[in-house]
C-alpha cells in the first residue's frame, strides 16, 4: 500500500555508492535508459539491490501492519454486508504483503530476515497505521483517503524498473480500486445518515486528513532518496507532485459528501488550477516515523504476538510434511 517510509532518514550512505565502471554496469545503465526491466538474475549494482529490498520490504510490512487498524472493526461491522466487504479487504492486504515479500525474496534476502527486521523495529512501515481507528467512520475514511493516497503512490510503481516489483504492483493496483470505492461508498452512506452519523464522519475526516496528506512523505526539498530512486526508475514522480495530485482529486469528493476539510488555508488557486493547502506539521510526521505515534508500540506488539502464536502451526505443518516425505521414501525403497 504505502511507501512513504522509504523516505525516512538515516539510511542514505549506501545510496551514494559510486558507480562501478564495468561492462555489467554499462549493460545495466543501457537497460534502464531503454526503459527495460531488470530481472532477478540480471546483474545490478549493490546499492540498487539494497534500495529495492528496503523499499519492497517496507511496502510489504505496511500491507500486513495495515491489516490491524481495520481488522479492529471486523467483529463490530454494522451489517453482514459490511462485514463481508471488510473481511475481503483485510484479506487483500494480507495478500498484497505476500506478493511483495515474494518480490523482495527474489533479491536474495530471506523471509525470516525480513520479518525479523520488522519485529525488531529495524525496518519501517507506513506511519499512517500508527493512528487508531476510533469509530466505524474511520473504516470508510481509510478506504477512501488512505487507500486513495496509496493508489496515487502505487500506480507509477507498476512501471518500476525491477520486474518482480512491477508485476506485484500491477496485481495490487487492480485490487486496490475496490478498497477505495467501498470506502467512499461507506462514507457516502454515513453522509446521508442521521446528524450523529454525519458528525462521526466529519470527526473521522478531521483526524485522518493531515496524516493522509503526510503519507506522500517529506517535501521534495527534504527528501533524501528521491533523486537516486528516480534515476534508477524506481520512483517516477516526486512526493510533492503526488501529494498535489491527491489533494486535487480528493477535495471535490469531500465537498460532494458535504464535508469540511480541516484546513482553514485551503483555497483553489485560479492561476495554477490546483488547491493550495496550509502548512503541514512535519514535527508530527517525524515523531510518528520515529516511533512516537499513538499506536506504534501496540501495532508492533500485535504483529510479534501473532507471529509467536502461529509458530506451532508452522512447526506442525513442517513435521507433518517431513513425516509424509519419510513415508513416501520408505514406500519407494
Amino acid at each position: 500500500m504505502y511507501t512513504q517510509a522509504m523516505d525516512s532518514p538515516g539510511q542514505v550512505s549506501h545510496l551514494n555508492a559510486r558507480r562501478e565502471d564495468t561492462l555489467e554496469q554499462e549493460v545495466f545503465d543501457a537497460a534502464l535508459a531503454r526503459d527495460d526491466k531488470i530481472e532477478p538474475r540480471n546483474w545490478m549494482p549493490e546499492a540498487y539491490r539494497k534500495t529495492l529490498i528496503r523499499q519492497i520490504s517496507q511496502h510489504a510490512h505496511s500491507e500486513i501492519v495495515g491489516m490491524l487498524p481495520e481488522g479492529n472493526w471486523i467483529t463490530r461491522a454494522p451489517s453482514l454486508k459490511r462485514k463481508a466487504i471488510l473481511l475481503a479487504k483485510v484479506q487483500d492486504e494480507g495478500g498484497h504483503g505476500l506478493y511483495l515479500y515474494a518480490a523482495a525474496e527474489t533479491l536474495n534476502v530471506s523471509r525470516d530476515d525480513l520479518i525479523q527486521a520488522l519485529h525488531s523495529g529495524k525496518a519501517k512501515y507506513s506511519s499512517i497505521f500508527n493512528y487508531p481507528t476510533l469509530t466505524w467512520a474511520d473504516v470508510g475514511i481509510i478506504g477512501w483517503l488512505v487507500d486513495g493516497a496509496a493508489i496515487m503512490n502505487q500506480v507509477p510503481l507498476c512501471r518500476c524498473s525491477y520486474g518482480p516489483y512491477a508485476r506485484a504492483m500491477i496485481r495490487i493496483c487492480k485490487e486496490e480500486s475496490f478498497h477505495q470505492r467501498q470506502g467512499f461508498e461507506l462514507c457516502a452512506t454515513l453522509a446521508q445518515g442521521t446528524p450523529e452519523q454525519k458528525a462521526m464522519l466529519q470527526d473521522a475526516l478531521n483526524r485522518w486528513w493531515w496524516p493522509t496528506v503526510m503519507m506522500f512523505g517529506p517535501s521534495d526539498k527534504d527528501s533524501v532518496h528521491s533523486a537516486q530512486a528516480a534515476s534508477w526508475g524506481i520512483k517516477r514522480f516526486t512526493n510533492d507532485d503526488l501529494r498535489q495530485q491527491f489533494i486535487d482529486a480528493t477535495v471535490p469528493q469531500a465537498y460532494f459528501l458535504g464535508l469540511t476539510i480541516p484546513d482553514a488555508k485551503l483555497t483553489f488557486n485560479e492561476d495554477t488550477k490546483h488547491f493550495d493547502i496550509g502548512e503541514i506539521d512535519w514535527d508530527e510526521f517525524w515523531r510518528v516515523v520515529g516511533g512516537d505515534g499513538p499506536c506504534n508500540r501496540e501495532r508492533l506488539a500485535t504483529r510479534v504476538d501473532a507471529y509467536a502464536k502461529g509458530a506451532w502451526v508452522r512447526e506442525a505443518a513442517n513435521s507433518y510434511a517431513d513425516k509424509q516425505r519419510a513415508r513416501e521414501q520408505k514406500k519407494a525403497a
Binding site: 484479506q91 505476500l98 506478493y99 508485476r167 508452522r314 505443518a317 513442517n318 507433518y320
Partner: peptide, 17 residues
C-alpha cells in the same frame, strides 16, 4: 509468483488464497 509452504498440498491451498 511464489510462496512458502510446508508441502505441495499446503502450497496449493495457499496459492488459492
Amino acid at each position: 509468483g511464489s510462496l512458502h509452504a510446508a508441502d505441495s498440498k499446503q502450497a496449493i491451498q495457499m496459492a488459492r488464497d
